[in-house]
Nucleic acid binder design. Sequence first.
DNA 1: TGGAGCGACTAGAACGATCTAGTCGCAAAC
DNA 2: GTTTGCGACTAGATCGTTCTAGTCGCTCCA
Lengths: 334, 334
Amino acid sequence: MTEQQRRPTLMDVARAAGVSRALVSIVMRGAAGASEPTRQKVLEAARELGYRPDSRARLLRSSRTKLLGLSFSSSQPFHAEIVDAAYAAASKKGYEIVLSAVANGRPETRAIEALLDFGSEALILISPTLSSQEMARYASQVPVVSLLRNDVGELVDSVSSDDHAGIRIAVDHLTTLGHRRIVHVDGGTAVSAAQRREAFRTEMIRHGLEPVTVPGGPNEEDGLRAGQSLTGDVPSAVIAFNDRAALGVIESLRATGLQVPRDVSVLGYDDSQFARLSYVQLSSISQDAPLLAAAAVDRAVDRIEGTQPPAHLVRTPHLVLRKTTGHPAPQMQP
Amino acid sequence: MTEQQRRPTLMDVARAAGVSRALVSIVMRGAAGASEPTRQKVLEAARELGYRPDSRARLLRSSRTKLLGLSFSSSQPFHAEIVDAAYAAASKKGYEIVLSAVANGRPETRAIEALLDFGSEALILISPTLSSQEMARYASQVPVVSLLRNDVGELVDSVSSDDHAGIRIAVDHLTTLGHRRIVHVDGGTAVSAAQRREAFRTEMIRHGLEPVTVPGGPNEEDGLRAGQSLTGDVPSAVIAFNDRAALGVIESLRATGLQVPRDVSVLGYDDSQFARLSYVQLSSISQDAPLLAAAAVDRAVDRIEGTQPPAHLVRTPHLVLRKTTGHPAPQMQP
DNA sequence: TGGAGCGACTAGAACGATCTAGTCGCAAAC
DNA sequence: GTTTGCGACTAGATCGTTCTAGTCGCTCCA
């Protein structure tokens, strides 16, 4: 086993190239102050030795780490999409992302402390569940950006999606198709559920329609149960809290012999991978993960590099039309 | 903005407690060599100042980092389950996990180098796509454990699931129920697909049955297509490459008016979150993510702390019985 | 009485980088 | 011919820890 070969340091490269450590440092981080010939010579020596700068030492010395800490929940597919996009956005800005998952038996505070220990210059927290006070405490150390949640107090940035606008788009879409009897299967106690429920009420009333809401939740089981509760008085369209609940609703309709969208239109929320499945083809309200991620990264970097105060950014979602919404079935009027 | 308050260091705590830096260091890492009264005094001072050790400095100085690097793919829900379990397993062993995602436009090598830069003492790679040579190169620097893939050469550890055994369990289960006409919807070019295909052939022949395989793939669309190709000659049971493909197969059967499991039994593979959904209730072969994760972490730690050579660990999967498999429908024999 | 042994504590050198404050030539300016 | 300025390069301090090699005071035992 040749495992114990110490990795080369600046000193080794310097010796090999016949210059000082400081000069190698200058070359390695592309700073000014080295002639082109020596620069090449140093680079060559570094390549030959397989030198890679030790980030710990580098970070220890320079106050800058160019690291953005990102906490996400390992059980949320939608978070994964954001992580994906955040990497791209960060590297475009010259930053690295360091991840920490909120998992079973690993609370959010633990994830955050790990990020701080690595020297993150800012934190991006996806759907944080901390109280505003706790977040403020972290915000006194580094800029904190809350993603997908905006009631986070004055000291924390937030990038979120306009729930009211999303529901408005949903209601407008369905009424334009001719639907009048629209039901909202809500998200129960989930984050954003209250906002969407309230928005639904407002928008339905605006259209002169009766806002009927049935209790639901954030996943398939909840949607299934909610759908079953509708069987006595089936509406012509359903707006679900999210895509997973929508799938449950569709399943329950199917079980009673109803077809989507022929008999009932169903609209999801999130435009997640589930919605895109070819056999589902769920029409959905998209929050656009890549856009949200990029916005959060931009905010974080701006806060790090600038002196601006925290801001609350709200993005407007949009409709992704697939195959679960259509004109209502012709039907007797009471 | 009170943002620029330097975080307290060992020195600050030492001054506050009236002792030397070294002693504070001893207390903070719980080492021997401090009396109980001073230990309390130091701890108190640290708590008061809100001291948190700077991991970069700590890691720089001590050769040990107690860090395990874990690379995963952000688009694979099954990987998320492993990440979850790995955190638990690592902290039980006194190690921390540092994550790096393989994402769109972020190749595996990039993810790995990030892990090394953070000072990972070992790498755990989930379903790595690197060549054996490339992995060997990394293995010369730190122990590398490949998870879910075992053809990785002599220098790399692997922890994988016994595909042959999994398929054997599947075939045995179905034949025991009385099925004779069993079809395998394979995984196409996906990792492990060839092994499972071959195992299916062997096992069916062992039972004196004809091994019929139809081309599939790793997700719903593939299953759907494969299912549609069966309509001329519907088997009594299907073993899908994985759960997502199984979902597609079920969908295609439904579309032709067939019921699961009354008319056709369908068995998935992975026992993923999809399989567990209440409206799916898919019987499946479980690879047991928590167990695999724990095994990988254990291997990594053993390699770091011991002098053992790399090993290839294989775990036997097991059947998780739900509601998509049952006795075959009574049927005319030709 | 004079070590030996031990527990509690400390000074100062690492670790591997960056940063500050230079030195050293050399050409242009006066 | 001295001064000035500038580009190229370097020595040494520094970041916040851990580690090594002590010192100091005390007890125990021959």
